[in-house]
Design a protein around this nucleic acid. Sequence first.
DNA 1: ATAGTCAGTTTATAAAATAAACTCACTTAA
DNA 2: TTAAGTGAGTTTATTTTATAAACTGACTAT
Lengths: 147, 147
Amino acid sequence: MRWSELDQADCPIARALSILGDRWTFMILRDCFFGVHRFEGFQANLGISRTILRDRLAHLVQAGILVQRPYQERPVRYDYVLSAKGKALNGVMLMLGEWGRTAVDGQPETQIRHRHQTCGHVLTPYVACAACGEEMVAKDVRAVRAG
Amino acid sequence: MRWSELDQADCPIARALSILGDRWTFMILRDCFFGVHRFEGFQANLGISRTILRDRLAHLVQAGILVQRPYQERPVRYDYVLSAKGKALNGVMLMLGEWGRTAVDGQPETQIRHRHQTCGHVLTPYVACAACGEEMVAKDVRAVRAG
DNA sequence: ATAGTCAGTTTATAAAATAAACTCACTTAA
DNA sequence: TTAAGTGAGTTTATTTTATAAACTGACTAT
């Protein structure tokens, strides 16, 4: 399979990765969740090459994950802000960060975490089942095909 | 920043992506969660080139996400199975699949979903806060530095 | 014997990422 | 009013990665 055919796959994870699964797109989105919203901001923050930054931003806009909002004319310059579709990645980001924090070795002393504004605690996120509210564990999940 | 320096970053998401953020590693892990555990299985399933499959498996083993369990001698052949660290990615996988299912356009009729074994429902996963049990929404989260 | 399986390795080619310089259309400070 | 700065790119040459396809080795099954 070529990477470019992945968006045809019969699996939501594969289709998600067809958009997010390259080396920098996810990092750009992380920055969006941290409040970065301009070309030079991403560039300074990630040290990414301008060429692929341009490609990735265009791709994220085309995929409807980021929206361009002009903040000046002549020349037109845009803020790149998360759409609803982009904000819906919040859960993925939180769980990915939690995995990085707890499972990946060699953590620096100082780390970035999140605070839950409504209850005031530093966030420890977990995934739950909408039907029963219980925490999801790997062994309790089975893949099924739904028509 | 080079990709190879990302594992030094002061952010758990960045460090997680230093392991998972290339074009195929996440897809290999998806297959692991779906029960694939041998070289030829991944190769047939993903159509990935054998060269990078070999690299990615070695990398996942080195990172402690997959474990090699020999199933024959002469020549030694291995099953690649998820370690505890690998299984800890379950939440990320579920949320990524949920995002792909609900947010990405052009869904085929037939889709792969998950069933929660303990309550019997087709799973709709969401992320909750361990402190208060409430569902997490993007606007209620703020990044903080924790020493 | 012959073919098949499994997990690779090798090699040549194609695609993607990178760094660094350059462009354009301004804006601000000297 | 010249000079420097900003912001978002584009261009180009080079390096790095990925790919396809054939090949190897050590078996096993027919």
